[in-house]
Amino acid sequence: MSIGLVLRGIFSALFVASVLRISTPLILPALGGLISDLAGVINIALEGIMLVAAFTGVVVSAYTQNVWLGVLAGLAVGTLFSLILALFHLYLKTDIILAGIALNIMAQGGTVFLLFTLTGDKGSSASLASGTVPRVVIPLLHDVPVLGTILSGHHIFTYLAFLLAVVVAVFLYRTPLGTHLRAVGENPEAAASVGINVVRVQTIAIGLSGLLASLGGLSLSMAYLSFFQNNMTAGRGFIALAAIFLGGRTPWGTLLAAVFFGFADALANQFGSLQVPPQWVQMIPYAATVIALVVYNVRRRRQAIERARRMQEQLHAQGTAFGGGD
């Protein structure tokens, strides 16, 4: 296959649609991670929470033969799993990074162990008849060329991801709880001094991050794929963390950064058809993450220096005449 075909692939409506699909399991945990990060408790266990939720959803939907029961169970178990982090960090005072790493390892090993116990297979749950959430076909729009392909026919989680970006933004900046959450993250002592219960707010933040990460996990095993796979998150929980920082710790920035990483991932899929060693192609999303973070920081620094230079010139231009009060 030639590079021309790849390029044509990228500039197609199908490709854009695939970016949205692939971004979904990044946007959701990133938004969750943003909530806990702004509350001052960085949730490094997003990866593990996603795995646990993805696994639970598949198993429960297979045994109950009800997709929605599976989704509910996944959300519940994923959120509870995240609250273990809250328990260890906030109540038992363990280091949050260590506790997060422990949860991730536990999730990876635990899901495989249970998977093997239930199916006798360590690789995937393909033998279980689990369900997937329905696709949403938007009437009328679905039949519009290009736009219909891009916007219609996705799994429900994809729409939810973008909708939740709005919800999270409103929650963080307009609601009392969101305001308290940001206050706690910025100056916990100050928040406590006006009667905000810091530990409670941080527990809620971790719980919400768990809920959103669980949605992300479920979108992998019950929408993107229709079964659970050993370590199927493949680092998405960590890329989500990177998206938060690349996005400047704002909901919109985080959303954009997550979509960017989704784009890199989709690109890797396209390149998969070229005569390039697959390892190189698989590196694309991760390399993009590193490069994006570097570029972001270099640019921020340069902007800062530029701003300083302009300010200094301005001051020099005003000479010693300047000197305002407060």
Binding site: P176, T179, H180, R182, A183, E186, N187, E189, A190, A191, S193, V194, G195, I196
Partner: peptide, 18 residues
């Protein structure tokens, strides 16, 4: 000071009892 630096003066004053 027990203030939230990135919040406005008004936001700081009503914090906790918005």
């Amino acid at each position: 000071f027990m203030l939230i630096p990135s919040f406005t003066v008004a936001e700081n004053i009503v914090l906790g009892q918005e």
